[in-house]
């Protein structure tokens, strides 16, 4: 009896505050916008019965999403931004993880802490820090003009480049940590063996080190890709008006246009878009766990 009580507490909590809200989103995405409070129709009414209620629902909002190219473009551009920034994060993160794994053992805990520290620092503040660096009279432009590389300030803030820089910066620890843990476990004698057998240092890296750290690379890439797809803060602070990302579109649809049914439909499609990478990620994690046992 007590066991069921224990199970019930978190279970009911999650049902009520995670599953039910999501069912509401699904329902509203099938409703019509209305000028009322709350601004959608139909309202659920027990007196009319479930059949009459269901008959009022339709896929109009989803049809609307396919007809207006804003949404297509926003989904595609979120995917593009997520893919490109994951690639750059990997490019920046791998050498750092590699250097950490090759550093003297007594440095490693300190280096680890230095990677984790930004993760505990406010996300918003870390994004904000770049606003002062990338603006027209910002530090990057001041520095580049001082060194004489450029004579006119570059416009970086409020463009997609600023969004890429912001994403790489804030998500870098998520990429470094799984790759580092894969590289740290790597047996150094394998690389020595490859070199003894005639591999150059570079080909030993490509043929031995990279394949053996594959799991870390995959895990890190998903950890960056999945949250970036629904990112809101970075595109709205660093991006420009032409930076389309679906998280930002959802936010504006809800807070500025007050079109709840369309915002809900955007949320449902975003979730469908995420199902594939999430399932792939889960499978990769499971495979890794089985391999370890």
């Amino acid at each position: 009896m007590r066991r069921y009580f224990l199970i019930a507490i978190p279970y009911v909590w999650l049902l009520a505050l995670f599953l039910v809200p999501f069912a509401i989103v699904l329902k509203i995405s099938l409703s019509d916008a209305a000028i009322a409070r709350p601004p959608y129709f139909p309202q659920f009414d027990w007196a009319e019965g479930i059949a009459a209620f269901l008959a009022e629902l339709d896929f109009e909002n989803f049809v609307w999403l396919t007809e207006d190219d804003l949404y297509w473009k926003a989904y595609l551009s979120s995917l593009k931004i997520a893919v490109i920034s994951t690639f750059f994060t990997l490019l920046a993160g791998y050498p750092i993880a590699y250097g950490m794994a090759r550093a003297p053992a007594e440095w490693r805990p300190t280096l680890m802490m230095l990677v984790i520290l930004p993760f505990w620092t406010s996300f918003l503040i870390r994004v904000y820090a770049w606003m002062g660096i990338l603006s027209n009279e910002g530090f990057l432009n001041q520095f580049l003009m001082w060194t004489g590389v450029i004579s006119e300030p570059l416009t970086i803030l409020n463009t997609n480049s600023a969004v890429y820089i912001g994403i790489v910066y804030t998500y870098l620890p998520f990429m470094i940590l799984p790759i580092y843990s894969a590289l740290e476990r790597l047996d150094g004698s394998l690389i020595e063996a490859a070199e003894d057998l005639g591999c150059s240092r570079l080909s030993a890296f490509w043929l031995v080190t990279v394949p053996l750290s594959k799991n870390g690379i995959i895990a890190g890439s998903f950890l960056v890709f999945i949250p970036v797809l629904g990112e809101f803060v970075i595109p709205s602070l660093l991006g420009g008006s032409d930076t389309l990302m679906i998280g930002k579109v959802l936010w504006e649809e809800f807070f500025s246009n007050r079109d709840w049914p369309v915002a809900s439909a955007v949320a449902v499609v975003l979730l469908l878009l995420l199902v594939v990478p999430i399932v792939l990620f889960q499978r990769n994690q499971q495979k890794q766990q089985e391999a370890e046992q």
Partner: peptide, 12 residues
């Protein structure tokens, strides 16, 4: 995504 969690809880 946080936007979805936020939206769904608000609607609830």
């Amino acid at each position: 995504p946080e936007v979805i969690t936020g939206l769904s809880l608000l609607l609830l």
